[in-house]
Amino acid sequence: MEPTEAISSSQTGAKICANCGGTVATGDRGRTNPSYIFALGQITTRFPSLGLEKEFAQAAGRADVEGQTDRQVFQSVLLEQSNRYLARQLCWIFSIEGLETYLLLPRDSADTDQLLDTIRGEPRTGDLDMVIGMRGPIAPPETCNGLQIPIVFFDQIYSFDRDSLLRSIPRPETIPADQEDQFRLAAGELFDRILQLADNAGAADEHRALNYLAVRYPVIYTQASDAFGRNCSLTGVDVRLSRLSGTRKIVDVIFSYTHRTTDVTEKFFVRVDVTEEFPFLVTKLSPYYER
Rank of each mutant, 00 (worst) to 15 (best):
G146I: 07
E100H: 10
D111V: 02
I151C: 02
T101Y: 04
W92K: 02
P141Q: 11
L115E: 03
F183T: 02
L185T: 12
R71A: 08
I138Y: 04
Q68R: 14
P137V: 05
V131F: 03
D111L: 12
A177P: 04
Q114M: 12
S76W: 03
A87C: 11
V77A: 06
A87W: 10
V152I: 09
I119C: 02
D155I: 04
L104F: 10
F74H: 08
D192G: 11
D161R: 06
Q68K: 15
D127P: 05
S76T: 14
D129F: 10
D70G: 05
P170S: 13
E100T: 03
I149T: 08
Q72S: 06
G126W: 13
Q179C: 08
R135N: 02
E122M: 10
G136S: 10
V77C: 04
I93C: 00
D113K: 08
Q68C: 06
Q68V: 03
R107E: 14
P150S: 08
E97C: 00
D163R: 10
L105Y: 11
R71G: 00
D181L: 13
S95V: 09
G126L: 14
L166E: 09
L78T: 06
L116R: 05
E100V: 03
L99F: 10
A177S: 15
A177H: 12
F74D: 02
P106M: 15
P150V: 11
D117Y: 05
Q114V: 04
R88G: 03
F74C: 00
D192A: 15
R120F: 05
M130H: 08
P140T: 07
I138W: 03
R124V: 10
L195Y: 00
I119H: 01
F153K: 06
F74N: 05
R171P: 01
T118D: 00
E189L: 13
E189T: 14
Y158M: 12
D155H: 02
G136I: 01
I169A: 01
F191C: 09
V152F: 02
G121T: 07
G67M: 07
I194A: 02
R124Q: 13
